Computed example of a mutant assay.
Amino acid sequence: MTTTTATTTTRATAASAAPGFRTALAFEWTKFASLRSTRWTLLVTGVLTVVGAVFVGLSGSLQPDDTVLGGSLTLGVISLMVAGAVGALTVCGEYASGTITATLTAVPRRGRVLAAKAALLACLLYVTGLVCCTAAYLVGGAVLEDGKYARGEPLPALFGIAGLFALVGLVGLAVGTLLKHSAGAVVTVVGVLMLPSLFGPLLGDLQRWVAGATPTAALEKLTQTSDASPETVGSLGAWPSLALVAGYTLLLLGVAAWRLRRRDA
């Protein structure tokens, strides 16, 4: 009884003395900025989107009913995959190096650790997504033949697309927290993005519901691409699709937080 009471008291004391959220956020920024893998992967997320706009514009591969916005963000799906990889590496890198133990010792409140990681990651990916997608739209408009394609409606769509980058990164963070292995987490995120669309035709009438609930479908609707037909991505609008992705992302983060609290580092 005495030992149990002492252990409980020690844990309670450590939790009460735990650093606040701002301090935890500062810790996470220091770790993120010091990891070469996350820095370069974040850079690739932005550069790839802009390079894709130039490539598509010069290749002349757009259909007559495509828009400048949709054509410029043709490689947006690949950029989302990289954003998911950034999220996975943010936590899996710590598990691989063993620094997760030091992190959880410095900030005993594990939910706070995950919340700090999520807040930092969401902000970085949102800004990256907004800047690179806006640049891609402007570059695409400059490269594509003037007046040949409709411009599309970039606002407020670009804000939603940037939010989608942040959400997919959080999916990667949650999956990485659950699996603890970079390769498995990245493959899982790619599967979430691609498999429903690839195997959707095999599902018959269920295709619009399965494929339509994915981040890929939300991206196609927000970019107003000609491929976003109700038969393939469902009849749900762009913003409700984004809200649906946000809903199950938060649910997945909740599961990850619950699992992080219940297991050893």
Score class of each variant (00 low, 15 high):
L62N: 01
L62W: 00
Q63E: 11
P64L: 13
D65L: 11
D65I: 13
D65W: 04
D66W: 00
T67M: 08
L69G: 00
G70V: 01
G70I: 00
G71M: 01
S72G: 14
S72R: 07
S72Q: 06
L73H: 01
L73G: 01
L73E: 00
T74H: 05
T74Y: 07
T74G: 02
L75W: 11
G76Q: 01
V77S: 12
V77C: 02
I78T: 14
I78V: 15
L80E: 01
L80G: 07
M81W: 11
M81D: 10
A83Y: 00
A83S: 14
A83G: 07
V86E: 14
G87D: 13
A88P: 00
T90P: 03
T90Q: 13
T90E: 11
V91M: 08
V91R: 03
C92L: 03
G93K: 08
E94Y: 05
E94G: 09
E94K: 07
S97K: 06
G98E: 10
G98A: 06
T99R: 01
T99E: 05
I100V: 15
T101M: 07
T101N: 11
A102M: 11
A102R: 05
L104Y: 14
T105C: 07
T105H: 10
A106P: 01
V107R: 01
V107G: 01
R109K: 12
R109P: 11
G111V: 08
R112F: 09
R112H: 07
L114Q: 11
A115Y: 06
A116G: 08
A116L: 08
K117D: 09
K117E: 12
K117I: 02
A118P: 11
A118R: 11
A118F: 10
A119D: 04
L120W: 06
L121A: 15
C123Y: 15
C123L: 15
L124F: 10
L125P: 07
V127A: 15
G129L: 05
G129Y: 04
C132N: 06
C133Y: 06
C133M: 10
T134P: 05
T134F: 03
A136M: 13
V139S: 06
V139F: 06
V139M: 06
G140T: 09
G141A: 08
G141L: 13
A142K: 08
V143W: 10
V143S: 03
G147P: 02
Y149M: 08
Y149W: 09
G152P: 11
G152Q: 03
G152T: 12
E153F: 05
P154D: 12
L155Q: 04
A157C: 06
A157H: 10
F159I: 09
F159V: 14
F159H: 07
F159E: 05
G160C: 10
G160D: 04
I161Q: 04
L164S: 02
F165L: 11
A166I: 01
L167D: 04
L170I: 13
L170A: 05
G172Q: 14
G172R: 09
L173F: 10
L173P: 14
L173K: 02
V175Y: 00
G176W: 00
T177A: 14
T177S: 15
L179T: 14
L179Y: 12
